[in-house]
Computed example of a mutant assay.
Amino acid sequence: MKILKSLALIIFTLGAAKSFAQKSDLGAWYMYFGNNKISKKLNFHNEIQYRNFDGIGDLEQLLIRTGIGYDLTENNNNVLLGYGFILSQPYVNGEKKENIEHRIFQQYITKQKFGRFYLQHRYRLEERFLQDDFRMRFRYMLGLNIPINNKEMLPKTFYGSVYNEIFLNLNSPTFDRNRVYGALGYVINKNLRIEAGYMNQIQENKNRGQVQIGFYNNIPFNKN
């Protein structure tokens, strides 16, 4: 746990240091993801992301997502219907604006394991109700987790995590953005883990980096 605390401290310090450089494009995202079993087949998804232009304090976006999923096979092939509330505060011509978006989404997640490689495919369709517009978007993410000090994702295991996600609009322009992510994670126990890493996003021909801290909670609600 001392190593984990040191890792988190390094990432937080990096984000805080960047907050003093107002012209820097490096932001920071602090994220919580919950995926909790309601029954053998049903799960409750809950998620909060606090995104900043700098280390902390200059809000870029607050994202809250929730949904109900169903496993088509045992602990895999999950289909989910969800809702998202997104509060954005972008800078427009040097002035900060506020936008609110309501989002309905449908997704399918399938997982595979090859040796010590844990693969995940996520397909997501979003209906985006913006303040002055309605748009639809498709997203595909390919993620990979690789345990380092164990062959399995067991408690007290460090692991590497990478993913690539592409966003495509169903209307023009087709390409929306692409995200590439790399992180070091730690399995606290069978239901809890934490990751600290870096994500680069390409949007409108611009690259922007994000330091990320993510906490994952899979504690089941059912007694079994």
Rank of each mutant, 00 (worst) to 15 (best):
N149A: 05
K223R: 12
F114M: 12
N77C: 00
L119K: 00
K5Y: 09
F134R: 13
F20W: 05
F117G: 00
D58M: 02
M141A: 10
F20E: 04
G27W: 07
A16E: 12
Y159I: 06
F221T: 04
E47R: 07
Y83W: 13
Y70H: 10
N200M: 03
Q112N: 09
T13S: 15
L9P: 00
Y70L: 03
T174I: 15
F158G: 05
N164D: 12
G57F: 01
I109K: 13
N145F: 01
G115D: 14
K23C: 00
I104F: 14
I86T: 11
F114H: 13
E98P: 01
T73Y: 01
F117S: 01
I56G: 01
A28D: 07
S172F: 14
N189Q: 03
E127L: 13
V211M: 13
L142G: 08
L14C: 09
Q49C: 00
I3N: 14
Q89A: 05
N217T: 03
D133P: 04
K2L: 05
D176I: 08
L142N: 09
L81M: 08
K190C: 01
L142T: 03
Y83C: 08
D176M: 09
G84S: 07
I194A: 10
D133Q: 14
N171V: 06
L42H: 10
K113D: 10
G160Y: 10
R116A: 10
T13G: 13
R179F: 03
G197Y: 03
